[in-house]
Each structure stands twice: as structure tokens, then as C-alpha cells.
Design a protein around this nucleic acid. Structure first.
Lengths: 109, 109
DNA sequence: AATATTAACTTACTTTATGTAACTAAGTAT
DNA sequence: ATACTTAGTTACATAAAGTAAGTTAATATT
């Protein structure tokens, strides 16, 4: 597969939302820090993939991981400034959805 | 996998960009109608998946397919109004990328 | 007339990503 | 010593995407 690279920054940004679940994870965290199991339950992602995504997002500086040394251990994931800056993107998606997505559209296959 | 459905419209909108390549396909078509092989070459997607995506996007009313009965046949894909309405979404992604994505970031893995 | 060319796909097969469910580690409480 | 809890990880199964060759229909070429 040849990489045509229209605009590298744009493509790299698209690759974030491009991946399954990342949009919903960020959407969740826009409401405040959340724990692993909370995100897992709230959006219905598998732990296996959530773990993978959170590592990616952390590596990209979008999410930060805080460890609270309680028992049992509590770990919270929160958005960084870079992550919070994605709010307008999610909002524009929401806005488009309000205007154009049919109420009855359930699964887009 | 339990479906928690935060906001069905929002989720269904996210599912569009969520899928690999759809963002880039729409980005391409924002510049005007394009033929199958042009999209294929411009973004480096495989024909197999492009065919699949275009069918999905057509089914969702985001893309329309026009057949020109020439020889060999010419088929153009263009955005519908619903599709064009996604421009602000792509723009907000571009804007975020300009502000936050490192120039050197090539592949986000 | 037979062969070649072109666009837009499709098919068969391989590789990668995701889902599922069971398991691990550390620190308590019973 | 055993059980409980969170935050994962591991092994395995299924679904999605990549690759490359093949198909169809209308000419154009030899």
C-alpha cells in the first residue's frame, strides 16, 4: 500500500478517530477523568482493546494516567490539554449528527 | 458486547469516521467528484475496501454514484449535501492537527 | 476473427485487528 | 490460607483489511 500523504498532520489526526473506539473514549473523558472499568462499562469496549487504546492515546499525549495508591489500586485516565482540544471536533460531529442522522438509524453497516 | 448507546445519532456519526479510510475518502471528495481509480490512487486504499466503503457511504446517503456510459465506462463518486455537511468536521480535525500534531509525527501506532 | 485494452469491480486467499473469556498481581479483609 | 477487588494480560476465535489475480463490457488493434 503506497502512502500518498495528503497532509501528514491531518492524516495523523484522522488516524486517531479512525481507530475504532478512540472517539468514544475521548468523548467519555471529556466529561472528566474515569477509571478503566468505568470506561469499559460505559462504552462497551473489551478490556483487551481498551488497554491497547489507552496506551496509544497516552503515547500520543492525549490521555494521562494517574495512579492512586489505594487498595485495591485506583487508576484514573484523564485528557491532557491536547486531548481536551479535541472537544470542538467531537462537537462538530455531534452537530452534524443532529442535522443529518436519522433518528431511526441504529447500526450503520 | 453490550451496546451502551450514549447518544445514538452521535454514535452512528462516529461510526462513519470510525471506520478506516472513510475520513480520507470524504476528504478527497470534498475537492470534487472523483473516479474509483483516482480515489484508490490518491489515498492508497485497496480496491476491495474502497468498493466496500463507497457502497456503505452511498447507502448512508453521503456519497452518490454517477454512471457515464462511455467506453470504457466512467463512474464518478460525489458527495451529497449530507456528505458536504461533513466539511466542518474535517476542518475541525485539520485545525486540531495544525495546533497539536507534531510535524515529525509520521505514523501513530 | 482473435487478441488486447481500459475502468470498475469481484474473488480467493493471507495478514491484521478485535472480541471473548479465563488468568495474573498486589493489597487487604475474612 | 482463602477470598475479594481493580487493572490489567494471555490465549484463542472471529471479523476486517490487504494482496493479487480474475471478470465484464465495450471498443481498438492486428
Amino acid at each position: 500500500m503506497a502512502d500518498k500523504t495528503i497532509c501528514p498532520k491531518f492524516e495523523s489526526a484522522l488516524n486517531i478517530l479512525n481507530k475504532r473506539w478512540t472517539g468514544l473514549i475521548i468523548f467519555q473523558l471529556l466529561e472528566g477523568a474515569q477509571r478503566f472499568s468505568a470506561i469499559e462499562g460505559n462504552i462497551g469496549i473489551s478490556g483487551r482493546v481498551l488497554s491497547e487504546r489507552l496506551k496509544d492515546l497516552e503515547k500520543q499525549g492525549i490521555v494521562k494516567r494517574k495512579v492512586y495508591d489505594e487498595t485495591p489500586v485506583r487508576i484514573e485516565y484523564a485528557l491532557t490539554d491536547k486531548g481536551k482540544a479535541l472537544e470542538p471536533v467531537l462537537q462538530s460531529i455531534q452537530h452534524w449528527a443532529d442535522g443529518w442522522v436519522n433518528k431511526d438509524t441504529k447500526s450503520i453497516v
